[in-house]
Amino acid sequence: MKQVKKAPDAFSGSVGLAIAGFGVEFKSDQPGIISVLKNRYPEFASAAAAGHRFETFEVSGRQNPFKPAVVLSGSSLKIKRGDFEGVLDLGKGSGTLKAAPNEQCLDAFLRSLISFLLLRSSGFMLHSAGLVKKGKAYLFLGKSGAGKSTLSKLAAASGAEVVSDEINLLRFEKGHFRAYGSPFWGEMRSDGRQGNWPLGGIFLLKKAKINRVGEVRAGEALKLLLRCLVNFDKSHAAAELVLKNASRLLAKAEFSRLEFSKADGSFLGLI
């Protein structure tokens, strides 16, 4: 990773984001990262964002290794990939980020950071589709090909609000799980929006010829839940948290199986 020389006309800027209730602020004397963040997350910009502040520096670097490594040592969190390295003192809430000024890089960094924070807030970042119906959020778990994007597009075409067609954010607050608006999307490539909704239920997703809702065993739900978890922290402490949070989610949320037809959005009537 090579540091990019600062432009002669020194730029000073900052951007604050609020994602899943976590404030993240980036400051830089260079224009690239701030500009990319402002363009990429317009719906999640927040002047009041606080909590985690990063002094950012633009670097050039390749994505290899592609998978971020997340390591917590004492109160120092390090999130690293070929094209970024973020170090955050969790006690002080401040740190540095050296990153390539492009969307893919900053998206990967934010996913890694937010997934880490969610797990420690009794929550999850989940590969899933998320919809809002009658003021409640419903998540649809499925790995690639399960139908998350198809279901999301059908729901949107039927007038339902889609929270994300790819990655949804859950937090446990005051005894209940809530889904938060997500900036992380798949095929639909929406910006998303800030907001949060009480969790109405979780469905295991399956494409079928007819729409049907069925029961699901807790063990089966847990297995898919863990497979759909977005988590780059491979520590023992993270694994303990995953099981603890999953146990709570299984106890608090209603899990069902949704078989749905890609003919139209009529499956919404079953939710």
Binding site: A218, G219, L222, L226, K234, A239, L243
Partner: peptide
């Protein structure tokens, strides 16, 4: 969890 024991090998 739910009567079964789950082991995570991170």
């Amino acid at each position: 969890i739910a009567g079964e024991l789950f082991i995570v090998d991170s």
